[in-house]
């Protein structure tokens, strides 16, 4: 029961933060709204007993990525952008799209409502071993190659970022 209450609280936090992120005018406010949305997701992870993801979400996303965001916002002059007239003037089209998508989702939910259940977890947690230990076993044994290749992906992204940002190398 208490879990359900917490679930709805965190879900509301996530959604409200996400909506505020795209509707606020000031970039700093957007970033702070995004932080609350990410915190909501972290709470949802905790409810699912994914302690590792919870910690990663807080440390990496809220702690690392968002602080970087705020730094960038500080360095880049966004006041001019905030004063500009914004683009979203197509209220009718947006409402029509929203209604159409909503109708599709509603149809989808009503037709498949009775069979919404998820498959069994791929790896059963060993007795006594926590979620983190299971995860590390998977990550550094079976999924070692994707793990290493992710570093290649980051390298490409860094090279790309430098290439795009520098005037002359």
């Amino acid at each position: 029961m208490l879990e359900t209450v917490f679930f709805y609280a965190f879900a509301a936090l996530t959604l409200a933060g996400a909506i505020l992120t795209v509707t606020m005018r000031s970039a700093v406010h957007c970033a702070i709204a995004l932080i609350s949305s990410l915190a909501g997701v972290a709470g949802l992870y905790l409810l699912q007993h994914a302690e590792f993801l919870f910690a990663v979400q807080i440390v990496l996303y809220i702690g690392g990525v968002m602080v970087l965001f705020l730094f960038v916002i500080m360095l880049v002059n966004l006041d001019a952008a905030a004063r500009e007239r914004q683009f979203h003037r197509h209220w009718l089209a947006a409402l029509a799209c929203l209604a159409g998508t909503g109708a599709l989702v509603a149809l989808f939910l009503t037709r498949g409502a009775e069979s919404f259940k998820l498959g069994a977890p791929a790896a059963e947690a060993a007795p006594g071993a926590g979620n983190i230990e299971t995860l590390s076993m998977l990550l550094f044994r079976e999924y070692l190659v994707p793990f290493e290749l992710a570093s290649l992906l980051l390298l490409v992204a860094i090279v790309g970022g430098v290439m795009m940002a520098k005037k002359r190398i």
Binding site: P146, L149, A150, V159, K167
Partner: peptide
């Protein structure tokens, strides 16, 4: 990696590697 991946995660990483490099190449003459 994309063409030899037999796993959705590998497929995703390969796709991103290829795509990010293409994004940068598309804007190479800055």
């Amino acid at each position: 990696i994309m063409v030899s991946a037999n796993e959705l995660i590998m497929l995703f990483i390969g796709l991103e590697c290829s795509s990010i490099a293409s994004y940068v190449l598309a804007g190479f003459l800055r």
